[in-house]
Write a protein that binds this DNA or RNA. Sequence first.
DNA 1: GATGAATGAGGCTTCATTCAT
DNA 2: AATGAATGAAGCCTCATTCAT
Lengths: 193, 193, 193, 193
Amino acid sequence: MTDINEPTPTATPKRADARRNEQTLLDAAAALFVTSGVEVPVRDIAAKAGVGTGTIYRHFPTRADLIIAVYRHQVEGCAEAGPALLSSSASPYAALRQWTGLFVDFLTTKHGLAAVLRTDNDEFKALHAYFLGRLVPVCTALLSAAVEAGEVRSDIEAQELMRGVGSLCIGASDPHYNARRMVDLLINGLRHG
Amino acid sequence: MTDINEPTPTATPKRADARRNEQTLLDAAAALFVTSGVEVPVRDIAAKAGVGTGTIYRHFPTRADLIIAVYRHQVEGCAEAGPALLSSSASPYAALRQWTGLFVDFLTTKHGLAAVLRTDNDEFKALHAYFLGRLVPVCTALLSAAVEAGEVRSDIEAQELMRGVGSLCIGASDPHYNARRMVDLLINGLRHG
Amino acid sequence: MTDINEPTPTATPKRADARRNEQTLLDAAAALFVTSGVEVPVRDIAAKAGVGTGTIYRHFPTRADLIIAVYRHQVEGCAEAGPALLSSSASPYAALRQWTGLFVDFLTTKHGLAAVLRTDNDEFKALHAYFLGRLVPVCTALLSAAVEAGEVRSDIEAQELMRGVGSLCIGASDPHYNARRMVDLLINGLRHG
Amino acid sequence: MTDINEPTPTATPKRADARRNEQTLLDAAAALFVTSGVEVPVRDIAAKAGVGTGTIYRHFPTRADLIIAVYRHQVEGCAEAGPALLSSSASPYAALRQWTGLFVDFLTTKHGLAAVLRTDNDEFKALHAYFLGRLVPVCTALLSAAVEAGEVRSDIEAQELMRGVGSLCIGASDPHYNARRMVDLLINGLRHG
DNA sequence: GATGAATGAGGCTTCATTCAT
DNA sequence: AATGAATGAAGCCTCATTCAT
């Protein structure tokens, strides 16, 4: 910071051990999120990662930061799949349906993630913003194409649709409930009216 | 016992003050459920009602008992509306759609109730059971009638549908989200095989 | 007590229902003391007796009063057995040993009573006083006779001995412990000086 | 790590402040156990030690852990005294008597400890187990030696004897009661039969 | 940078006791 | 007299977060 030869003028590059730690933390958190939900105690994550709790706070000041980091790769993958599907599918509606399926697959394998996305708890505001900010534009493109192709009604917005899909994925672990079927119904419902 | 006008011959009627207190409690709880969700601390409810915490435990041994009591009237009303709509509506499907609308109206005006219904927290098991036990049969009747009339697909069960509807009502207070529209989509999606 | 004339000229005689209630209470308390110890919640006793808690407090202002009342008959019986044994036994020491046996029988069949007798909790002061006041003189007579007969050492006081016996009866329900054997040891130890 | 003076190479040594705190806690607990018994509220101990309640739970997850830690030194001392007395005393019986005296000294200076040892409260199971596990073997050795020397009767087991001794130490603070004298009686009583 | 010890607010629940009905 | 509703003090325990080492 005070060195005139500073290699990266803006950000100091992370030390190797810090980077290693960060990955360890992400792995531990991901594992615990699956088994205990994203509200698992910080100490449990620290213990699983073999670090102190302070280390978590250094790398991820808020829980939302940690959750975002854990799922960033998959969210990115989902976002990138949108345009790809649009160009490879038989119709925009088919692409929309397939893309929605990917999103459902992602959410339903993350115990508790869907629930937290729908919470209006301040703690998760940033998480919320990240998810929608990254995925709404993708969904909008798919939806618009389907509308323009005359396949679906035009009065639904992508953001709302995504929230609906997200909501339907809450509690997907219940054996008496099948989120995918419900989402299929929802997407099917886009066709009339 | 011999008096034809005897209101409650067997059970001792509740003392007037106790009944008053119970109502005060229900009102306080209902108000706090709206502003702070159904997980609001017991002490807050007691404070708002102007009673001691023990009084709450006397009337409602578990939190689920309290929540059920708060919403009982409306759940009963919703349950009773099912058969009525079936006989008064133009078609079973129309009745189903209207009934679903009532359910959505109920849920979306109870901040946090839909969320708690989807929680798998043990604390709410009884609540869960009460809601489903009371409403699933009603929904089943409506759905079956619509299936028999050939209006909707036959592979969806009432319980699943209700959970879907319930899920879509989570976070309905968000201005960017309209639970009713999403539920309409879902019900719409029931048509077609 | 059996006097045909007014038994208590000053106090208003108890109403029949009050007397009946009192007995019901004693029975209920006795039963619960056996199964749950003498510290069982007041409400449990009231419930078992089918009365309100207030009724208990009216009849027995403190818990000690209730305990004393419950055991009065047996304590009296034990007290009266002392002189009887002294005159019927082969020797004062034999009488002392037998009498101690009666006391042990009494205590060990009252789950928790021995413990509460040894507590220095203020709540039980009166209980304490009653037991000792009634039984110490009896024990003193037995012990003195044995001392005078040259059968046991003379430096032990009845009160102390009774407390020792009482202590040894604590936890008598434990299968690895036999209060009677320990008390035998203690009494045996009185010989020699 | 490469320092030849490294004190504990494998286990991370406790931080100095933690160790200090632990001692402070033990001291505070010991003091309060004396004045208020071992069931004194956790918050009181924390307050006396000048720490938060969480600190107590960190160091001693259960109350039994805390009690054991408080008395560990003295229990160990008592346990170690057994064999020593056996080899230095004039006779096994004399050793037994002396050892019992040590045990009594220990218990009678710990207000409420004897009582809790006799409680069948689950909370104290571990405490119980620790005491008996550590001291019964010692007592067994002493008792067996005395039996083999023909000094005492052979039908009493160490565990039972220890419980008896423990029981006699309950309420030792009462000026009208002398636990030591009662225990002497008990040990004396071992000689016949 | 990393650690993990300490903090202490915050929630739940039980019961002895009082007192309006 | 009897009732039992209401009170509210007490205790327990968990965890997010800070900060000395």
